Amino acid sequence: MPCLLQIETSTRERLDEAYRLQWLGEVAAIEESLRHIEGKKEQADRLRRQAESGPAGLG
């Protein structure tokens, strides 16, 4: 998860720069990347919760 957070921070910085420079195509691509990063964070969180709760059906 720390790596994903670092990637997200860097991507948001790139988004700010793209907005500042009015690179609208780049803005759209970076926003799409951020949506994918958010999905990966949610997936990582789900896997972490599953690992913490142990194997399904054994509780």
Rank of each mutant, 00 (worst) to 15 (best):
I37H: 03
R35H: 07
W23I: 14
P55C: 06
E42P: 04
P2Y: 08
L4R: 07
A18W: 03
H36Q: 11
V27K: 03
L5W: 09
I7R: 11
T11C: 05
Q50P: 00
L5F: 08
K40S: 10
I30W: 03
C3Y: 15
C3A: 14
A51E: 14
P2I: 11
L24E: 14
V27I: 09
W23T: 14
I7T: 01
K40H: 14
L15S: 04
E32G: 07
R46T: 12
E52N: 11
D45C: 10
I37N: 06
S53D: 03
G59D: 08
K40G: 13
S53I: 09
D16T: 09
S10L: 15
R12S: 04
L5G: 02
E26P: 01
G39E: 04
L21D: 04
D45M: 14
H36G: 12
G59E: 10
G57C: 00
I30C: 06
Q43W: 10
Y19Q: 15
G59H: 06
S10F: 06
P2T: 14
A51K: 13
L21Y: 09
L15F: 01
H36L: 13
I7S: 04
R46Y: 11
L5M: 08
L21V: 09
A28V: 07
L15G: 01
V27H: 04
T11P: 02
S10R: 11
S33A: 11
L58E: 07
L47T: 10
A18N: 02
S53C: 01
T9E: 15
K41D: 02
A28D: 13
G25S: 05
S33P: 06
I37S: 01
A29K: 09
D45E: 11
A28G: 04
E31W: 05
I37E: 00
E17G: 09
E38Q: 13
L58M: 04
I37D: 00
G25Y: 01
G59N: 06
R14V: 06
A28I: 05
G54M: 02
K41E: 00
L15I: 00
E52H: 07
Q6D: 08
G59I: 06
L24G: 11
A56D: 13
R49Q: 06
K40V: 13
A28P: 05
I37F: 04
E26V: 09
E31P: 02
L24T: 15
V27G: 03
R12Y: 00
L15A: 00
G59M: 07
Q22R: 12
G59Y: 01
L47V: 09
A44Y: 06
R49G: 03
L24I: 14
E32H: 08
L58V: 05
